[in-house]
Design a binder for these strands. Structure first.
Lengths: 210, 210, 210, 210
DNA sequence: GATGAATGAGTATTCATTCAT
DNA sequence: GATGAATGAATACTCATTCAT
């Protein structure tokens, strides 16, 4: 029919913010904050530049929104697991790490993580937000987990002020790795093998020698 | 004679490049590549903007020069240590890590490291350079070290394709930490405690259970 | 009957244009043409931005409509006064000026006046319109008035090509003053005193010395 | 010769600011603050857009600089005349106005004046500056002048709180006129005639009736 | 070598205008 | 009629880079 020509734009009020956030996330992760052009964010989301400003006050607010929208939903899962788990602490540890690894693929956790480390010094306010909402909560959870292992005689005595960071490091590093040097490797790391070795080494290091 | 008075600027022209690199390093670390203004680099080095271009073709070349100049001097030390060390592998491991930690403070290793992770995707060529010259060489050395431990019956059987990354992660993470979230903590980590716990946990995890 | 309930909006559609013009007038006077945002005009009139375009083709047409709508009603009054007045010309002069002063408060004459002077060079077509419909007519009337004074021996010989402007100036200046520098004065002018001094000085200047 | 080709730019550090101010003045007067594009200011001054920002922080600062540079030099002249004049106050009055009229042509006083009235409400800070530096000083001077006339029995009793504005109005109006409606007139006003009638009417209005 | 004035392409942001609902 | 989401041209401002001195 004659009037099949596609309209110049269509009303998408509800879907728009999410589409914009996805586009922005991808580009922020790829290029960093400063090098990401709003032009391109808009183009990737299939809208005009002006439309961005209907939903986000400016580039910085867009950045914050991206971080918030992507992080927050993924925090509580681990906390719930912690409080309900029956079984040995070693098994719980394997379970927590396992869940976490899943999020790397599904939620672009790796991308956000890299982004936050790269831009933290430029956005102190946002760094604080991330630290409070993600890092600190995560460490609290790990402290409880380790304490449980110690209390039940499974783990050695541990310095709980530093152990959460030490334990977490290999996983976080892997996330950063994905967005930085993985492409440089002739034989990229097999994640499953990496996690296996990590778990066995780390648990051996934590557990009481019998 | 009259003109014995010292010239208005004796500026050893040999020192210039190094002063520029130092200023640039500090600013790149603080703000990232894109957000660092050459104006400010020049000002901090006490020269005019134009002078920068006498020494570096453009901003990107300056960035590369910064990375190269800061990295290269710090690699070979560990390699030499490896080949000459007499003693148990555990002791060697402690020694290697100890040396490494010193460099964090002296050579702004932490800053470069953060910079490389943040900008690797924007500078693939440089990421490759860093990977070859630093990461890969370092991993080679760690592989030798671990192999030595395994061969002498000190360490368990290990997957040498992934263990270097796992072992290194807590130290690298600490370097990144310094430039990103450390300021967010009410009680910043005590590095010495961190390294102690790291070494004991990691070595316990590596060593054969007797 | 069921549908007797009053409709959600009875909004006399005839009132709309006037509401829009009022809102626009206020904002144009306050910010000038360029700095007035249609968004704000719409908001102040309590309608959506799109609605503006149902009534006015574009910003420029809106501006023109504002000027026309506000000016036209206020011109003829003085003309009628002129042709019917019995009494001395000095009294007539006082009467004309008095009426004019009333309009300053009632019809935002001051606002329009400032607006016209500020934007005349950007809207030559409109300046022409204003000149023909307001300024020239007003001067014609003043010429008749002055001529009457001269003819009856009340006023001195006068150069009627320039006197209307000279006579009008203090009143027009006052109107501009209200929208520009009045706020800067520690003791704002008392209008009544201003008009008194103006009338006595000006009439003394016009009248034949006996 | 071969290298006669004109350079891409030449160093003009000293002349530049004045050239930029001239270009900006002309355009601000013609189009008002908001409608003046910095692109065009730069083009008219024969420089690039960026050069503007070497000399003025932003558009607003440029505007302020234009006003200051043009006004300030023209204020003191009248003040000096006042304090040194020997002769009747009527003659002094004619002299002051005469000097003022000269500035209209030489210094684009008319342009600035229109500009200030048009933008005063958008730039309260600047309006205050203009009020203090120009308007108030001018009124002070006129108050002294009128007082002198009264004291010496030349002028009638006058309300000195309003007379300066009334006296000034026709001259200021003329300045505004030049930039707004003069082009609309079929027979533009002859300034000399205008001033003659103004002086004789106003002086007659001021002087004591004998 | 060293300078810093000048450049101009590039980018975030605004806002008058359109049009599907 | 009325809406407000979407548009995109326009513009202030930045900053890497050049080059006459």
């Amino acid at each position: 029919m004659l009037n099949e020509a596609k309209p110049r734009w269509t009303r998408r009020k509800d879907a728009r913010p999410q589409e914009l956030l996805s586009a922005a996330l991808a580009l922020f992760v790829e290029h960093g904050f400063a090098a990401t052009r709003l032009d391109e964010v808009a183009r990737r989301a299939g809208v005009s530049k002006g439309t961005l400003y209907l939903y986000f006050e400016n580039k910085e607010e867009l950045f914050k929104a991206v971080i918030r929208a992507t992080i927050v939903p993924n925090i509580e899962q681990s906390e719930q697991l912690m409080s309900s788990f029956k079984g040995s602490t070693a098994e719980l540890f394997r379970e927590v790490i396992g869940r976490w690894c899943e999020q790397i693929n599904t939620a672009n956790m790796a991308g956000i993580c890299k982004l936050m480390f790269a831009e933290a010094s430029n956005f102190p306010e946002l760094a604080q937000f991330y630290h409070t909402e993600v890092i600190a909560r995560n460490e609290q959870m790990l402290i409880k987990l380790l304490q449980r292992g110690v209390d039940e005689g499974e783990f050695r005595e541990l310095d709980l002020t530093v152990m959460p960071k030490i334990i977490t490091a290999p996983i976080v590093m892997f996330m950063l790795w994905c967005n930085s040097f993985n492409a440089c490797e002739s034989h990229p790391v097999v994640f499953a093998d990496y996690v296996d070795s990590y778990l066995s080494t780390m648990l051996t290091g934590l557990m009481k020698n019998k």
